[in-house]
Deep mutational scan, measured.
Amino acid sequence: QTVVIGDTTYHLNNPEAAQQIAKELAKKYGLKVVISGNTIKLK
């Protein structure tokens, strides 16, 4: 699972954790979560 935040890319072996982290950050910073395949992007 790949999480992309701005110009930073994180690789996590746990998809659920990756999605949870993405949701928390999106909520905290008012970002939009875009999931395509096994890549999660925060914009």
Score class of each variant (00 low, 15 high):
Ile5Trp: 11
His11Trp: 14
Gly37Asp: 06
Lys43Gly: 06
Glu16Gln: 10
Lys28Glu: 04
His11Tyr: 13
Asn13Phe: 10
His11Val: 11
Leu42Arg: 01
Ala26Thr: 02
Gly30Pro: 06
Pro15Ile: 13
Leu31Gln: 03
Asn14Ile: 10
Tyr10Arg: 04
Gly37Thr: 02
Asn13Cys: 14
Gln20Ile: 09
Asn13Met: 10
Asn13Gln: 12
Asn13Lys: 10
Ile21Met: 14
Asp7Arg: 14
Val3His: 02
Thr8Val: 13
Leu42Cys: 08
Gly6Pro: 03
Asn38Pro: 02
Gln1Lys: 10
Pro15Arg: 12
Val3Tyr: 03
Gln1Ile: 15
Thr9Ala: 08
Val4Trp: 05
Leu25Ala: 00
Ile5Glu: 02
Glu24Thr: 10
Ala18Gln: 02
Gly37Phe: 06
Glu16Ala: 10
Lys27Phe: 07
Gly30Ser: 03
Glu24Lys: 13
Asn14Ala: 06
Lys27Asp: 12
Glu24His: 14
Ala18Trp: 13
Lys32Tyr: 09
Ile5Val: 07
Asn38Thr: 08
Val33Glu: 00
Gln19Lys: 13
Gln19Asn: 09
Thr2Val: 12
Gly37Ala: 03
Gln1Ser: 14
Asn38Glu: 04
Lys27His: 07
Gln20Arg: 14
Gln1Val: 15
Thr9His: 08
His11Thr: 07
Gly30Trp: 05
Val3Cys: 11
Val33Tyr: 04
Val4Leu: 06
Tyr29Ser: 04
Glu24Phe: 15
Thr9Ile: 13
Tyr10Lys: 05
Lys32Gln: 12
Ile5Leu: 07
Asn14His: 07
Pro15Trp: 15
Tyr29Asp: 04
Val33Gln: 01
Leu25Glu: 00
Glu24Gly: 07
Asp7Leu: 12
Pro15Asp: 06
Leu42Glu: 01
Thr39Phe: 05
Asn13Arg: 06
Thr39Arg: 05
Val4Asn: 04
Tyr10Gln: 03
Asp7Tyr: 15
Ala22Ser: 02
Gly30Lys: 08
Lys23Phe: 11
Val4Ala: 04
Leu42Phe: 07
Ile5Phe: 08
Ile5Ala: 01
His11Gly: 03
Lys27Leu: 10
Ala26Gly: 03
Val33Met: 13
Ile35Val: 09
Thr8Asn: 09
Ile5Ser: 02
Lys23Ser: 11
Thr9Gln: 08
Leu42Ile: 12
Leu25Asp: 00
Ile40Cys: 00
Ile5Tyr: 05
Lys32Pro: 04
Thr8Asp: 05
Lys23Leu: 12
Asn14Tyr: 08
Glu16His: 08
Gly37Met: 05
Gly37Val: 03
Asp7Gly: 11
Lys28Arg: 11
Pro15Asn: 07
Glu16Pro: 01
Ile35Asp: 01
Tyr10Gly: 03
Leu25Asn: 00
Gly37Asn: 07
Gly30Glu: 03
Ala26Met: 07
Glu16Tyr: 09
Leu31Lys: 03
Lys41Gly: 03
Ile40Pro: 00
Thr2Asn: 09
Ala22Gln: 01
Lys32Gly: 07
Thr39Lys: 07
Leu42Trp: 02
Asp7Thr: 14
Gln19Val: 13
Val4Cys: 14
Asp7Lys: 14
Asn38Met: 06
Lys41Phe: 15
Thr8Cys: 15
Ile5Gly: 01
Val33Lys: 00
Leu31Gly: 02
Ile40Leu: 03
Ala18Pro: 03
Glu24Asn: 11
Thr39Gln: 07
Lys43Glu: 15
Ala17Phe: 10
Lys23Cys: 13
Ile35Pro: 01
Ile21Ala: 05
Ala18Glu: 01
Thr2His: 09
Thr8Ala: 08
Gly30Cys: 14
Thr2Met: 10
Thr9Trp: 11
Gly6Glu: 03
Gln19Thr: 08
Glu24Arg: 14
Leu12Trp: 12
Gly30His: 07
Pro15His: 08
Glu16Cys: 10
Ile35Phe: 06
Leu42Met: 05
His11Pro: 06
Gly30Ile: 02
Val34Ala: 03
Ala18Tyr: 08
Tyr29Trp: 04
Ser36Asn: 11
Val4Met: 09
Glu16Phe: 09
Ser36Phe: 10
Gln20Pro: 00
Lys27Gln: 09
Leu42Tyr: 01
Gly30Ala: 04
Ile40Tyr: 03
Glu24Pro: 00
Gln20Gly: 04
Tyr29Ile: 07
Thr9Tyr: 10
Asn13Leu: 13
Tyr10Val: 12
Lys28Trp: 09
Lys41Pro: 00
Val33Ile: 14
Ser36His: 08
Ser36Asp: 12
Glu24Val: 13
Pro15Val: 11
Lys23Pro: 00
Gln1Met: 15
Thr9Met: 10
Thr2Trp: 14
Gln20Cys: 09
Tyr10Phe: 12
Ile35Glu: 03
Leu31Ser: 02
Lys28His: 05
Gly6Met: 07
Leu25Lys: 00
Asn14Val: 09
Gln1Tyr: 15
Lys43Asn: 09
Val4Phe: 03
Asp7His: 14
Leu12Val: 12
Val33Pro: 00
Ala22Pro: 00
Thr39Trp: 03
Val3Met: 07
Gln19Ala: 10
Ile5Arg: 01
Lys28Gln: 04
Asn14Met: 10
Lys27Pro: 05
Val33Arg: 00
Tyr10Cys: 15
Leu31Ala: 04
Val34Asp: 06
Leu25Arg: 00
Gln1Arg: 13
Glu16Ser: 06
Ser36Trp: 07
Lys23Val: 09
Asp7Glu: 12
Gln19Ser: 08
Thr9Val: 13
Leu31Asp: 04
Glu24Tyr: 15
Leu42Gly: 00
Lys28Gly: 00
Pro15Lys: 12
Gln1Pro: 11
Thr39Gly: 04
Pro15Gly: 07
Glu16Asn: 07
Glu16Lys: 10
Asn14Lys: 03
Thr9Lys: 11
Thr8Ser: 07
Gly30Thr: 00
Thr8His: 14
Pro15Glu: 09
Val3Ile: 14
Glu16Met: 10
Ala22Trp: 07
Ala22His: 00
Ala17Met: 13
Glu16Asp: 08
Gln19Tyr: 14
Val3Gly: 01
Lys32Arg: 06
Ala17Thr: 11
Ile35Tyr: 06
Val34Asn: 02
Leu42Ser: 01
Lys43Gln: 13
Thr8Met: 12
Leu12Arg: 02
Val4Tyr: 05
Lys43Arg: 10
